[in-house]
């Protein structure tokens, strides 16, 4: 897809979708949304960038390897459940703290969701980029 219109729009679209994916991720705390759907939106943002500028450019733009992103997410999600080790509660127990400075509650639930977001974004964009790059070869 090398049309001028698409190549002009793609960066803005990608940026907007990434922003929207974070919005969906945070919104999922109390309303429909969450890490999974947010991750999918982020992955489609990378996929659009890949269609417009090719896979190598997308990989450079992502900076980290998608699989590494997914691994980091898995680690974050798993670690977030371990807070119970220190408070005498079981695995994956929600821990909440009020923080007057930021203005909203911080909890390990949102950290778990961020982990899910990274797993989905990393894994799906890895698949998407792999599929797009074979298309380039033909």
């Amino acid at each position: 897809m090398k049309t001028l219109i698409f190549r002009t729009v793609a960066p803005y679209l990608t940026a907007l979708m990434l922003l929207f994916s974070v919005f969906i991720l945070l919104r999922g705390h109390n309303e429909p949304g969450g890490g999974f759907i947010g991750g999918l939106i982020a992955a489609s943002a990378f996929a659009i960038y890949g269609i417009a500028f090719g896979v190598p450019a997308t990989r450079r733009a992502m900076w980290f390897h998608p699989i590494a992103i997914a691994g980091t997410g898995l680690l974050i999600a798993a670690l977030s459940g371990l807070t119970g080790l220190f408070s005498g509660t079981p695995l994956l127990t929600g821990v909440w703290t009020k923080s007057p400075i930021i203005g909203f509650d911080i909890s390990n639930v949102i950290i778990f969701d961020i982990g899910v977001y990274l797993v989905v974004a990393g894994a799906v964009s890895s698949i998407a980029l792999a599929l797009e790059s074979t298309e380039d070869n033909h």
Partner: peptide, 11 residues
């Protein structure tokens, strides 16, 4: 599971 995730990151 934790270490598996770690090994993916440092693969």
């Amino acid at each position: 599971l934790l270490v598996g995730a770690f090994l993916i990151i440092v693969r």
